[in-house]
């Protein structure tokens, strides 16, 4: 994995500390080309990996990228699935079965073939695989070396104690998509316990890691201890914890932690992108 990963929250109005800012961002990134231009700025700064949700508009971005294979040679996308609000809104409106009907491909419930068979035989893993494949379609022809489950789903599965689901997901991503399975969570130490319990060693886990302890469930000390003493390939997100601490101090903290292989950040302007990338490189260089 690259040291710095460029995220997509800013493009789709995901802002954890301001609803107002999130709406302003949605206006700014109305055009797909504006999104791609910002990704290009990050590439110019040497950040060649884009980590994104499987939001419908990412499909459009992928189309644009496929049109210029030369330009985007060596460019990676790390998809995070599913785009949870799509399903959450659907469940509110249609219920759980209604949502499956709408999103599981191949007329899942009506047909006795393929998906239909999976339902009749209660093969829920086949259903999950179909949903993964459906979400992955938009990335066809693009380098996708790592695939994540979104935190809402990871944490839901974890809370329900469905370890085998994580194991099956893990194996399926390796087998079918020839990629590294990875996890986003708001409960990193707890997830590591569960993954290890089903034999998954040294997993890639992306979680909030910041100097303020914001959204680090179980506490900052537990996270620090986990990183120091256990085998995990960490990705730090929400490193600026929504702007509570000055950028320099916040990045210095994260750069100094062991087992944090990558740092994920999102920004809308050239100035912010440049500042974040340069600071991370600077702190990394000072460490050596």
């Amino acid at each position: 994995m690259e040291r710095i990963l460029f995220g997509d929250n800013q493009f789709f109005g995901v802002n954890h500390v301001s609803d107002e800012k999130s709406r302003a961002q949605m206006m700014k990134f109305k055009e797909d080309k504006t999104i791609l231009r910002t990704i290009d700025i990050a590439r110019e700064e040497g950040v060649n990996t884009f980590m994104c949700t499987t939001h419908d508009r990412i499909g459009n971005i992928c189309d644009l990228i496929r049109q210029e294979p030369e330009k985007y040679k060596g460019f990676n996308i790390y998809p995070c699935m599913p785009y949870a609000h799509k399903y959450a809104n659907a469940v509110t409106e249609l219920g759980i079965v209604g949502t499956l009907k709408q999103y599981v491909p191949g007329n899942f419930f009506g047909s006795l073939f393929k998906g239909g068979m999976a339902f009749v035989s209660k093969d829920y893993m086949a259903m999950m695989e179909l949903l993964i494949d459906a979400e992955m379609k938009m990335f066809k022809g693009i380098n996708v070396p790592v695939i994540f489950i979104q935190n809402v789903l990871t944490d839901l599965i974890m809370g329900l104690g469905m370890k085998d689901v994580l194991k099956e997901y893990h194996e399926y991503i390796i087998k079918k998509h020839n990629a590294e399975p990875a996890y986003i969570t708001m409960n990193m130490p707890m997830l590591l316990d569960m993954l290890e319990s089903v034999g998954i060693k040294n997993p890639i886990i992306c979680s909030s890691i910041n100097i303020d302890g914001f959204r680090m469930s179980g506490g900052k000390e537990l996270y620090e201890h986990t990183l120091k003493t256990r085998e995990v390939r960490g990705i730090a997100m929400q490193v600026l914890s929504g702007g509570a601490t000055p950028v320099k101090q916040a990045l210095q903290y994260v750069c100094g932690l062991p087992k944090v292989e990558s740092i994920l950040f999102g920004a809308s302007s050239r100035g912010n992108i440049h500042e974040t990338v340069s600071l991370i490189r600077q702190f990394d260089a000072e460490k050596k």
Partner: peptide, 8 residues
């Protein structure tokens, strides 16, 4: 925000 033991 106060820290919780498990976040969902």
């Amino acid at each position: 925000a106060e820290e919780v033991a498990f976040y969902l």
